[in-house]
Design a binder for these strands. Structure first.
Lengths: 345, 345
DNA sequence: TTTCAACACGAAATCGATTTCGAGGGGTTT
DNA sequence: AAACCCCTCGAAATCGATTTCGTGTTGAAA
């Protein structure tokens, strides 16, 4: 690594002191026009850029924020990253991304790595395993150190900090309502186990929609998936044993598995069964049929989280109280709920 | 931000010097057992962790690598990130991710931001606009500064550095060969314009496969997409005017658009037309029919790139010559090429 | 008793930048 | 001519850690 140009070298070269160089480059009035121009010309010529690390040490802030996510090969989190990155860059910050791969241990390690001066604050979405364990000491620790933290999507209610979430429950309710409005009466839900906060909330929304319409809640129509990897067979099995006219799936994977299962039964989506999905990604947009879905506005969530975090970092508003921002979901209706046989109610 | 515990504070608290504390914590033999234990106990009690920034400044290395990508809402790049992240973390490094959004200017800005001490080296995949412009001065600059750089996937031949690519051309050739073996004789290709390096290479592979089998190359069957956003209509139009029995698409988006167009013509994939895609993602795995595709092994590419970069960083092997690693693609055959009518040759 | 080595620790330099404070020189005021 | 001020610049502290070198003490060897 070739050593980069430093203030000291410029000083030696031009036979002035380091402080003079620093001041000249920052247009301090202490420095005469003559000297200033000479130094600035030299710096420009050799393309001097101050060393970020030295600045970080001096200023006690790194102009970098950390983003800790459970996974990345997932359109939703990818869009969150885009949102965070855009806002952060616009405001002059870098983004340090760490993946927990849904592992508690990796999440702890990541927080520790970052919390030692590398960053000015965190944005994180909690790992699945962490939610399962319910162990949040690592979060409490960094927060008690005074590190600003914003949680996104998969949040922890017990931890007090800024949060950006979507109205999971309302979004689910609206989606199911849509199914009902389109004539469905026997609606199954394919969801996650309850310790996943968003899964639980979406299940609640499903239940609310049914009750709002005086439809009976049949426990038998609720499928809670524990093992996402092998969910496809489980879903196929589930649907083969039940006669439903509508399916609400809490993510794209479950939705596509459901469609596939229905089709392999010789039935059709949307002619025989309507399917509503959650989380809008490439998959929903390009599937055949295209999937109706609840749009989570991931980029917007990321952008909002970044703004919240940077506001807290820059204004040092430690005493200001924490807020939970809810980004509204919206329904995107596509082919999978365009029923041609059942008339809309 | 509450000030974190520093060596100086420990020193003051225990009434020893800063150097003694530092040495004690690093188990230096200069320090007596007594003092060492006292200091280590204190540090442990108050959970002392050295400040990363100070270490970076002192050591002249940040234990962080930069990863500059054109986009992220794209399974391939997401898997590359996973691979990089895993290796980097395993070897004790953080990953700073920047997105260029395929913009030349943003790429330049990102490089400049990172090149000032924030990181020890780069991994990057060149932005589309940069390839179009052919302006690589920003790359040359950071490299001439002695910053180690590894390029991934979308590489620039003119720049001399380590590279990790796939055998785009061979992968495409193999895919097209597979189509031919499955009985296709009129094979269209849906590809990108030539300034995208990988698009051009895949087109070459397509041509080679045709020639290898003494099939005539019909320019009319080659569709080069410039505007990816509105590619769907272009593809539908293209296919409606041509009678083909096989389609090779250089990415998942083009492939799904093609399938959709074929189906809306009242024909079937794979019964009437076989479709082979490139880049294996959720979409290919979950589409109906599931898509045969050329697997790019993104995680492997990312991992390899990270290993190359870290080796260069840690061994300071500036003089060692640069290598281009080719990660072999592999064909994944799924439903979209399981022809039931045309017998395999 | 003198000398010397081993031991345990501290002072200071260093990484690269910023910033406070002080000082020298030139000119102006009384 | 004495007093003063302003302009311009440099020395040094600082951020938090590491590391070299030096120093004082103790004990043992000569």
């Amino acid at each position: 690594m070739k050593p980069k140009l430093t203030l000291k070298q410029i000083a030696r070269e031009l036979d002035v002191s380091v402080s003079t160089v620093s001041k000249a480059l920052r247009d301090s009035p202490e420095i005469s026009d003559d000297t200033r121009q000479k130094i600035q010309a030299f710096a420009k010529l050799y393309n001097y850029k101050p060393n970020n690390i030295a600045l970080s040490l001096k200023n006690r802030r790194t102009k970098t924020i950390g983003l800790v996510l459970p996974e990345i090969v997932h359109d939703f989190f990818a869009t969150v990253i885009s949102g965070v990155e855009e806002v952060a860059n616009k405001r002059g910050y870098n983004v340090l991304i760490c993946l927990s791969n849904n592992s508690f241990d990796r999440e702890v390690i990541n927080l520790e790595m970052l919390a030692n001066g590398s960053i000015d604050g965190f944005i994180l979405s909690v790992a699945k395993e962490t939610q399962q364990k319910g162990d949040y000491h690592h979060l409490e620790e960094v927060i008690s150190q005074g590190m600003p933290v914003v949680m996104v999507d998969r949040v922890v209610n017990d931890i007090i900090c800024d949060k950006v979430i979507i109205d999971d429950s309302d979004g689910a309710r609206d989606a199911v309502q849509q199914l009902i409005d389109n004539g469905c009466r026997k609606i199954a839900i394919i969801t996650t186990v309850d310790y996943i906060s968003v899964g639980k909330l979406r299940t609640e929304g499903y239940l609310r929609a049914l009750r709002n319409n005086d439809l009976e809640v049949e426990e038998d129509l609720i499928l809670k998936i524990e093992d996402v990897e092998n969910s496809h067979e489980e879903i196929a099995q589930f649907l083969s044993e039940r006669e439903v006219d509508g399916i609400f799936a809490v993510n794209e994977q479950f939705a596509t598995s459901a469609v596939k299962a229905i089709i392999s039964q010789g039935r059709s989506v949307p002619d025989d069964v309507l399917v509503f999905s959650f989380s809008d990604g490439e998959l929903s947009r390009r599937f055949i049929p295209t999937l109706s879905t609840v749009n989570q506005h991931g980029a917007e969530m990321g952008a909002k989280a970044a703004d919240l975090l940077l506001d807290r970092i820059e204004n040092d508003t430690t005493e200001e109280k924490f807020q939970t921002t809810i980004v509204k979901t919206s329904l995107i209706e596509r082919e999978s709920t365009q029923n041609r046989k059942m008339p809309a109610v």
